[in-house]
Design a binder for these strands. Structure first.
Lengths: 143, 143
DNA sequence: TCAATATGACATCATTGTTGTCATGTCTGA
DNA sequence: TCAGACATGACAACAATGATGTCATATTGA
């Protein structure tokens, strides 16, 4: 039942954010900034609107996070060969290193969780979640 | 990989909220009020702190939603046999009927989604998500 | 009984998602 | 080529909501 699958999604998102946020406190980062950093670390330099697409958020909110990251020296603007006005945003070496450290900590924590679930089950869960997300995302797009 | 399973959770929560919120507009409800209504509809009259436990939220925030529901005639206070001060919150007939209508619409929408996933896969996804939520929730509790 | 805790009520704040505007750069089709 | 449509950065304002603190009162357990 998809309804029952959807029910724990928001509490899970909340508690995940709480755990992540606790670790981020000492680095003076917010979960929003961390999310942008993650996209940049994994997908390379992107424009602000593209980051918004990746995270399903409006470009205006992303711009705030990007500005905050630049203020902290964790991200920087780069000229965009394909567009004079829309610059590319990239992680600085400090930003990339910081995110690597953050992710390592998160992976360590996750390593002990859901121990009774095999990798096949987790893979199945991932596929189901992706399918549901795809269709809900499409539904949300009809606005 | 649990990390990859966790990644789409927040976008999914966001897009779900967007879809639900759109339907709630016409009823002058917020997703927070809907969440409280859902708990009351499924679990019967509860006190405000208990609703907070169910939703992993602080009682103060729940109190706001409950007050909003009472203002709209969708919930009401009932005397609590076990506690003179801490009253029970229950749906009114109007609140129960409204939530039933809301849920029917949501189920209808969900009916067409993730069509390629069988019920066994969805059940597996639910188990994995529940296990992950259990452990992340415990981790979040250590604060 | 008395100290610790729980609860309602109220207040404040920070984060963040949403929306709107404007000037300017870019692109597409006539 | 050019004009209109669209994209983008910058800036602003707002709403929902999660987090936190306080205080008076009720409850509970030692």
């Amino acid at each position: 039942m998809l309804y029952d699958l959807l029910r724990p999604v928001r509490p899970l998102a909340l508690n995940s954010a709480r755990v992540v946020e606790t670790s981020l406190r000492s680095d003076d980062l917010t979960v929003g900034m961390r999310a942008v950093l993650e996209v940049l670390a994994e997908q390379g330099p992107l424009t602000v609107p593209v980051i918004g697409d990746r995270l399903d958020l409006a470009r205006q909110g992303i711009q705030r996070h990007v500005n905050d990251l630049i203020d902290r020296g964790l991200a920087e603007q780069r000229p965009n060969p394909a567009h004079r006005r829309s610059v590319l945003i990239a992680t600085t070496p400090a930003g990339a290193a910081l995110f690597e450290r953050i992710r390592a900590g998160e992976l360590a924590r996750l390593g002990t969780m859901a121990a009774e679930c095999g990798s096949a089950e987790i893979a199945t869960a991932l596929r189901v979640l992706a399918a549901l997300h795809r269709d809900i995302r499409a539904e949300a797009g009809r606005s």
